[in-house]
């Protein structure tokens, strides 16, 4: 597949996400969860992005692991996929589409603005631990997004700012339970990502930990996730609002770590190039 076609496919997925965002907003206006049409669009976005990634993979002879464009592209795919799977199997999370969809759209628009030129992956980097590291990282962020999106809608609905949003979370207690469960699983995957990353870094470039900005912020994110789970047992009377706001804060830090740090430092890891 040519680079031009790949870029067109990305553009199509961005337009689809824009449509899904409109569907969500229309849903709010009508006072209902417009989940089914949104999920349908997600499924098409996943198919289109699968084609784009597969085409790129075949053309470059390597997976999307290295450049910032690679990171955005693969995460747009994985975040959409994980959110769709989670929301399809856990109805309580579906209102989260109201927050998840525009966020995916932002990533998509960002992607269209990046150079898509590939950089070859040095031989030493391609081993099983890279896969474990990357896949668990994507699962972490996807699950954390699902928890955060649902938490944000709950926060909005309880802020009383709009009755239209308030009706989206009719079972706040169950939804909250589900959010914490997702958050906990995301913490497990984050831990796997961290350890697999260290094993991989050791085999790929002889350093299991080098305090590069990405590693440092990943550790900070991990401590934050663990700290928030801890805070819940430390302060048993932690309010629902405070807990959900902490989840949102953790996602913001995770998001900045995944996309902000590599954006600023060009390569995902300082040692990579």
């Amino acid at each position: 597949m040519s680079l031009a076609l790949e870029r067109q496919l990305v553009l199509v997925s961005v337009l689809l996400l824009a449509a899904a965002t409109l569907v969500q907003l229309a849903g709010v206006a009508l006072g209902r969860i417009a989940y089914r049409p949104t999920a349908g669009i997600y499924a098409v976005v996943i198919a289109v992005l699968t084609a784009a990634i597969a085409g790129r993979w075949v053309r470059e002879g390597q997976g999307p692991f290295l450049t910032f464009y690679d990171i955005l592209l693969s995460n747009l795919f994985s975040l959409t996929l994980v959110f769709l799977l989670v929301s399809a199997s856990l109805p309580a999370i579906r209102p989260g589409a109201l927050v998840a969809t525009p966020l995916l759209l932002v990533i998509g628009v960002w992607l269209t603005d990046m150079s898509a030129l590939a950089a070859p992956l040095p031989g030493a980097f391609d081993n099983t631990w890279l896969w474990v590291h990357v896949i668990s990282g994507k699962l972490f962020l996807g699950l954390c997004l699902a928890a955060t999106a649902a938490a944000s809608v709950m926060l909005l609905s309880e802020s009383g700012s709009s009755r239209r949003i308030a009706v989206l979370t009719p079972h706040p207690q169950q939804t909250e339970q589900m959010i914490w469960a997702l958050f906990f699983v995301s913490f497990i995957f984050h831990s796997v990502m961290l350890v697999a990353g260290a094993v991989w870094a050791h085999s790929a470039w002889g350093r299991y930990w080098s305090w590069d900005p990405l590693e440092t912020w990943t550790l900070v994110t991990w401590l934050m996730l663990g700290g928030i789970l801890h805070a819940r047992v430390t302060f048993r009377n932690l309010s629902q609002r405070a807990g959900l706001a902490l989840i949102l804060a953790a996602f913001v830090v995770a998001f900045l770590t995944f996309f902000g740090v590599p954006f600023l430092s060009i390569a995902p890891h300082k040692g990579v190039m």
């Binding site: 209902r32 969860i33 989940y35 856990l90 109805p91 309580a92 579906r94 009719p170 079972h171 169950q174 939804t175 339970q177 589900m178």
Partner: peptide, 13 residues
């Protein structure tokens, strides 16, 4: 929680 929060129920409520 999963058994009680079907989407239809959600919309209904």
């Amino acid at each position: 929680a999963g058994t009680t929060t079907k989407e239809d129920a959600l919309v209904h409520v």
